[in-house]
Amino acid sequence: MTSVAHPARVRTFHPRRGRISGRHADALTRLWPLWGVAIPEVPTARLDLATLFGRSAPVVLEIGSGMGEATIEMATADPARDYLAVDVHTPGVANLLAVVEERGLTNVRVGLGDAVMLLRHMLPPESLAAVHAFFPDPWPKARHHKRRLFQPDHVALLRSRLAPGGRLLCATDWAEYAEAMLGSLSADPGLGNEHDGFAPRLAARPVTKFEQRGVEAGRQIFDLSFRRVAGPQ
């Protein structure tokens, strides 16, 4: 039998490794079974968000939560909604779990793995109240642009998982990527820009250490705010 070659999976992130401190290792051991969400390389089951959080409430997906600074502040200020934060960096996931416990938050769950796989295979359509993607990898080299999160097929996937009226909030400190993001989001017939072009800085988005380093380096911050409107499913 002749084997069929399948196209290689194109990742939107750099696989990252990092040292796990004792505190982080303890958090993973104790807290992952309680609040962790594994995202397999090839997911086979849908995620029941009401069961995951123990209640039926609007859910915000944060893609690329890093060390969890923004997640913690936004979830603390927004207890009526649940936050599913996803990253590929194990030390960041562990840190977020530890701080969730320290703050006594009940509305945060933490995913480890590829957010695109989560969206495509594990989350049902129209299941999210919002998606946050703050400072995604800009993949600046032209030959790597196919790896960017904000390109038409990924934007369509993001939009399909938003409930009607759901919001897609983004930020970047890479000017060329900001223009590309604005173009891809504006071209989607199911998304409406809440502003004329880029948005004012989102008041609810805390300044993280990553963003502060960009500002200190002289890079401009670009915010975008789009909403799911009538359009394709």
Rank of each mutant, 00 (worst) to 15 (best):
P40T: 13
E41K: 09
E41G: 14
V42R: 12
V42A: 14
P43A: 12
T44A: 15
T44K: 15
T44M: 14
A45T: 12
R46Y: 10
R46I: 01
R46S: 12
R46A: 10
R46W: 07
D48N: 07
L49H: 01
L49I: 05
A50K: 02
L52C: 04
L52K: 07
L52Y: 07
G54H: 08
G54D: 05
R55Q: 10
S56R: 15
S56F: 12
P58A: 03
P58N: 06
P58R: 11
V59D: 02
V59Q: 04
V60Y: 01
L61M: 01
E62F: 09
I63Q: 09
G64E: 07
G64Q: 03
G64V: 04
S65E: 10
G66H: 07
G66C: 08
M67L: 14
E69L: 07
E69K: 12
E69V: 04
A70D: 02
A70L: 07
T71W: 07
I72P: 05
I72N: 06
E73T: 04
M74I: 06
M74Y: 02
M74A: 12
M74H: 08
A75C: 05
A77T: 00
D78H: 09
D78T: 15
P79S: 14
P79T: 11
A80G: 13
A80M: 05
A80W: 12
R81Y: 03
D82W: 06
